[in-house]
Amino acid sequence: LEARLEQAAMLKRVVDAIKDLVQDCNFDCNDSGIALQAMDNSHVALVSMMLKSESFSPFRCDRNIALGINLTSLTKVLRAAQGDDILTLKAEDAPDVVNLTFESPESDRLSEYDIKLMDIDQEHLGIPDTEYAATITLPSSEFSRITRDLSALSESVAIECTKEGVKFTCTGDIGNGSVSLRQHTNVENDAKSVDISLTEPVALTFSLKYLVNFCKAAGLSDRVRLCLSNEVPLLVEYGLSNNSYLRFYLAPKIGD
């Protein structure tokens, strides 16, 4: 494997966004790019990352390899990279280590690190292609604000999407709260628009603790997409350039 990223910041942000949710992960490398799928310890949330080969220049992967990496270790090494450093990942066939180099674009500084790899026997889930009943695309900062504000009151949020809009509601010991958003096009700045596409009404309840955690990815993208269907996990997607993405799935809370 040899994969060169123009900006180390991208990988730094991705790892920062997921390291509190998942610890040891396989980075599956093949000629289409670098993918990661991992569940949190409680098997309630799942991270699915895809960094397409087009996000790297150049990208070369001659044989499929799984790089088992501890994200705490990776974070320690990535802290040594400046955001605008050029980052290159390298690994041999059947590797013991992954090699990372950070090159400063404006000086002759080159730093080089090896991280020991681990054997990770991870359960892989098959995620079917789903036609979601509701898809909401909104500013990622708005979604962060909603989850943060509501998490101060309650552990859970009900998300209801109808043709009127989307409503986030919570009930806690001190009282209750809600935030409603309508479809809205911001003509000056499209990134601030709220787009809602709905085929049937949806109402689901989720744990806010996980949603707050997902929002650590907000720095990766101005926009976030929420995909919901009744009685299936929520998909929270942060799109990256070149069709790369960071997705989170969250199992709902089910009424008894």
Binding site: L46, L125, S156
Partner: peptide, 14 residues
Amino acid sequence: SSQQARLEGFFQVK
């Protein structure tokens, strides 16, 4: 009250 579901209830383990 509601119960937290697990992902295996929705996605198949490969």
